[in-house]
Measured scan of single mutants.
Amino acid sequence: MASDGVVVEIGKVTGSVGTTVEIPVYFRGVPSKGIANCDFVFRYDPNVLEIIGIDPGDIIVDPNPTKSFDTAIYPDRKIIVFLFAEDSGTGAYAITKDGVFAKIRATVKSSAPGYITFDEVGGFADNDLVEQKVSFIDGGVNVGNATPTKGATPTNTATPTK
């Protein structure tokens, strides 16, 4: 695992066909100046998982989280898009600690492993708008004895992609 920078880890949970599971997305290594904004994309298989919603985690402190935390689910493109932009203008609602960034709610549709993997990152910046190093650890849903650990090695991303 990367020793510096922010680590975004997609949790690994267990479920069975027809059940709804909650998959946490963790941030670790949050910089001392916090995270003022970030955007990134995960990939998944809508034939295996139906993403039914995404909720902000406990490290989102904006009293009205829909102003700073936004997501979009595109089953036709097989992606989930995340956007966080601190909304106070003063840094008061920045992410300042490690913990759960988001909770992905999904219904298991198939007995195949439900991988959720890193696809791309736009950027991560602290309260001074300084770009942060970030790496990703894939996860998803274990169905029966299947284990979604494909790509469990962190993917280092030093520069934003478009």
Results as ranks from 00 to 15, higher is better:
S3D: 03
G5I: 15
V7R: 07
V7Q: 05
V7K: 10
V7F: 08
V8K: 01
V8N: 15
V8C: 15
E9P: 12
E9L: 08
I10C: 07
I10T: 07
G11L: 06
K12N: 04
K12F: 15
V13K: 11
T14G: 06
T14C: 14
G15E: 13
S16M: 15
S16H: 09
V17T: 07
G18C: 06
G18F: 04
T19I: 06
T20F: 15
T20A: 10
V21D: 13
E22M: 15
I23K: 07
I23Q: 12
I23E: 14
P24L: 03
V25E: 02
Y26K: 04
Y26Q: 05
Y26D: 03
F27I: 04
R28N: 10
V30R: 10
V30Q: 15
P31F: 05
P31R: 10
S32Y: 10
S32K: 08
S32A: 08
S32V: 08
K33V: 03
G34I: 03
G34A: 06
D39H: 00
F40D: 06
V41G: 00
V41A: 01
V41Y: 00
R43W: 02
R43S: 05
R43I: 15
Y44F: 05
D45V: 05
D45T: 11
P46N: 08
P46I: 08
N47R: 06
E50G: 08
E50Y: 09
I51K: 08
I51L: 05
I52R: 07
G53Y: 03
G57S: 10
G57N: 15
D58I: 12
I59C: 05
I60D: 07
V61K: 14
D62P: 14
D62F: 15
D62N: 13
P63C: 08
P65L: 13
P65C: 07
T66A: 08
T66L: 05
T66V: 14
K67D: 06
S68Y: 14
S68C: 14
S68W: 08
F69L: 01
F69W: 15
D70A: 15
D70T: 12
T71K: 06
A72K: 00
I73N: 07
P75Y: 13
P75W: 07
P75I: 02
R77D: 04
K78W: 02
K78N: 03
I80L: 04
I80F: 04
V81T: 00
F82P: 00
F82G: 01
L83Q: 00
F84I: 01
E86N: 00
E86S: 01
D87M: 15
D87V: 15
D87R: 15
G89R: 01
T90A: 09
T90C: 11
T90P: 01
T90E: 02
T90F: 15
A92P: 03
A92S: 06
Y93P: 01
I95C: 13
I95G: 02
I95S: 12
T96F: 10
K97V: 11
K97Y: 14
K97N: 05
D98R: 14
D98E: 10
D98A: 12
V100S: 13
F101P: 07
A102T: 10
A106F: 12
T107E: 12
V108Y: 13
K109G: 08
K109N: 11
S110Y: 04
S110C: 07
S110A: 14
S110I: 05
G114E: 09
T117I: 14
T117C: 15
F118Q: 10
D119T: 09
D119K: 03
E120H: 01
V121D: 15
G122V: 00
G123P: 00
A125G: 03
A125Q: 00
N127A: 02
L129Q: 02
V130W: 09
E131Y: 01
E131W: 01
Q132M: 03
K133Y: 06
S135L: 11
F136Y: 04
G140M: 15
G140C: 09
G140W: 06
V141W: 10
V141A: 12
N142H: 10
N142L: 12
V143C: 07
V143G: 10
G144H: 11
N145Y: 13
A146W: 04
T147I: 12
T147G: 10
T147R: 10
K150N: 11
K150Q: 13
A152W: 04
A152Q: 14
T153L: 11
T153M: 06
P154W: 10
T155R: 09
N156D: 09
T157D: 11
A158Y: 13
A158P: 11
P160D: 12
P160R: 12
T161A: 10
T161G: 08
K162R: 05
